[in-house]
Design a protein around this nucleic acid. Sequence first.
DNA 1: GCCGTTTTCGGCCCGACTGTTTTCAGTCG
Length: 580
Amino acid sequence: MYIDEFTNHDIAQLFAAIADLMEILGEDRFRVIAYRRAATAVSDTPMAITQLYQNQHLDRVEGLSKGMAEKIAELFVTGDIEYYSRLKERMPVGVRELLRVPHIGPRTAGRLYNEVGITGLADLRDAIDNGRLAQIKGIGARTVAGIREGIDAVADREERTLLLHAWQMGQALLTEIRQLPAVIDVAWAGSLRRGQTTIGDLDIVVVSHDPRACAVQISTLALLVKPMVQETRVMARLQNGMTLEVQVCAPATWGATLAMYTGNDAHRLWLQKQALHHGYTLDRDGLYRHGVVYDVPDEVQLYALLGMAWIPPELREYYIADVLPPQTLAPLLALGDMQGDLHMHTTWSDGNGSIAQMAESARVRGYTHAAITDHGALIGVTNGLDSKRLRAQRLEIDMVNAEYHAAGVDFHLLHGVEVDILVDGHLALPNGILHELDIVVASPHINLRQTPEVATQRLLKAIAHPAVDIIGHPRGRILGGRLGAPVDMERVIVAAAHHGVALEVNSGPDRLDIDGELVQAALAAGAVISVNSDAHDVSNHAWIEQGVATARRGGATPAQVINTWSLPQLTSYLARERHK
DNA sequence: GCCGTTTTCGGCCCGACTGTTTTCAGTCG
């Protein structure tokens, strides 16, 4: 039995590798999809697959078919999957790295191996440098340039985990740790607590009266893979492939330890400097005065002892060096401030939920309103709506609203659209229909490889359009996938502020576009922002938490985020802006 | 490979755009 050797992450990687190799080898694409689905099913499972297997509960893994469960059994029994071995004989595994590079799909990856012998990113770089790549039929100068551009964006992708996935794992860990008898309190630290868009390692700080005993208890949790205990610290791997570090401290040092583990490095050094300045020394074990531990039961007291107001973790990277923090910071946007989600899709275009289902899911989250913004007609696969279908959709939205109204429920749906911003900045729907809608989100989806000037003009033109209320995921970046359009965001922000158009923080886990830095710039210029889920399924509404974290990193206060406004306030904003 | 059955096999995600061609293959959303 090889059962202890595989985490969920390992198994998902194996299925993904099989799918990639099959695709490169030109196998039936529906079989490829089957393996991909299995990879997703496994990595979406919080419980250890090994444990489910031992309890004969693999059939409880949602989305995992019987055939794929058998492959997992084969892996646990023999240590390998025979089909995978046979694929590897036909195509080196390294070739699948090439698929991550923009402009290289399975066919090209296969040709790069067969015709030039390229087996990985390093080979690909060499082939670009020595001109071998340009010699391949069908790959011209522009494609080579595109590949050269994309290769670096892709290189560090494997190392980091998307905020959403780290968040989910962090939640699961907190829940389990909290139930241990020796635990008084527990919190995330590190980049997860700071709300970074991608996370390296997961850091957690725990408070206990008996830190050593508590560390041992933590090491027994089923979520941990190969845990190691060093006095009051636990190191382990997690099922999703991340590395975990848990530090247990005594109640008296909680404030100091949590702040030191939250960081970042620069903020940590700055805190230590401030401590010295006030006659203390500060390290991960606590705050000391004349060599004696000084009680700091929480972070607020730590910052107070160092002569300043508590700084929310999301802003700590910005408060470093000689920058003096304000004595009181305005409260940042919180999840509870959100009154409406203004960007979501339904089965009318490419979503999975009906209008009524998406509305109810938004209402249950505590919103008073939400906007249905299906795709406008342009992108084929999204089944976009033209004017005629949008008018038909209006009737269904009116009906849902009427039902809420009749039931005396305080919830209202706005009718909107997510319209494509075309290459030249024109919108993909006629002005007539755009003006009929309650709200218009305009987003760039295709042709994201433009020169900076053209890409910028494209957005500026859309912002100037009188019907546009929100610019959706302005750069179109995909985390770990592509950088997005080379837009001059400074000019875009100025224009958005001028025209009263909101810039979106899209909460899609691989988007988080715009990010914290741009939020900060936008707010400084007087623009408003809109934090939206871009949900295509009722379950996606939860993504808003990562969007809120991103807005917080930009220092957004509730008033600066149009989603916190009451329906009357939002409606008057939409009306005023439309008649400009 | 999986699903849902008219339970034995056909359908499953397809259309636009790009770059390279000279009529289209491949990538992307």
